[in-house]
Nucleic acid binder design. Structure first.
Lengths: 157, 157
DNA sequence: CTTGCTGCAAAAGTTTTGCACACGT
DNA sequence: ACGTGTGCAAAACTTTTGCAGCAAG
């Protein structure tokens, strides 16, 4: 599945500093270390608007001449999720996909099944209904994943 | 992730015959064959209310003394999806999950993150809004996957 | 210095594929 | 008979893990 990020803004450098600090604080609180590799991975994650995969991070970092191992990326990704900086997105079951969530509105996705392009959207109305349904079933809503499949539209691929 | 199917009805034998015929017709239309193994796999799928994994099918069939290989199950699953009889459900990214959809209302899921129990639900209102959003983005809606995470409730695990 | 981190390579887990033989139509 | 399916084992692929050396606090 191709994942061209149709996200609005470019790399928002105003968020880089805070997130770096936030991640550092998170690590310190757990007695973990803020290493060069972790900083590089966070940088790369921030440069990727939209959804990304571990593969892509690895590739981009190697392109940029940064020697970071797959294992370290996987290990760091877990911490970034724990820290609430990124989130797993369920897109297909053969590979994990992630997206930046810190400082962003929760995002859902529409996939154009004709060309696998993804569109991000956010509907407070849908979110509200989802939370309501969850409560009706006796649970406190803590999040959701929504993927909509669509077809047609202008053939823009 | 544990997947105890909280689906209402028991194995609805009234649907078994039609589905068998439907699958057979689907295969014939494509020049494919309706083999013993495919019939057995369909039977097993129909016996599983709620979400299931390939592992489970394999295990159950072997329990029942049916000698079917993993490879055949994977190959048949693909045809069942193509035939519109089952559907992939996005639950986690390490294993594919499927559910029967033929003759059933589209189903979404709530996961209790405390005990991994799953609740099925269907909200026409949410479905309608989702379709609307899709159209607003210029695409014709053809389906969606929704997974809601909830916590708390009665500790019933 | 102490403790956690990295890279490597091997392991683990799911899904796919090549091939020789078997079966449905 | 023909063309497709099956089982097996190996391959492909993503993710995890063990370990020896390294680096951050």
């Amino acid at each position: 599945m191709e994942l061209p990020p149709p996200t609005p803004a470019g790399s928002d450098s105003t968020i880089v500093q805070p997130l770096c600090a936030i991640f550092r604080r998170f690590l310190k609180k757990r007695g973990l270390k803020f290493t060069t590799e972790r900083a590089l991975i966070l940088d790369t994650v921030l440069s990727k608007e939209g959804v990304f995969e571990v593969d892509q991070l690895l590739f981009e970092m190697h392109e940029a001449g940064h020697r970071v191992s797959k294992a370290t990326i996987y290990r760091t990704i877990k911490h970034l999720v724990e820290a609430g900086i990124i989130q797993e997105v369920l897109i297909d079951s053969r590979q994990a996909h992630y997206q930046l969530i810190y400082g962003r509105k929760p995002t859902d996705h529409i996939v154009n099944v004709d060309n696998d392009q993804m569109i991000e959207f956010y509907s407070p109305q849908i979110a509200k209904l989802i939370e309501q349904v969850c409560r009706e079933h006796g649970l406190k809503p803590v999040g959701h994943r929504l993927l909509v499949y669509g077809t047609g539209g202008e053939s823009k691929a």
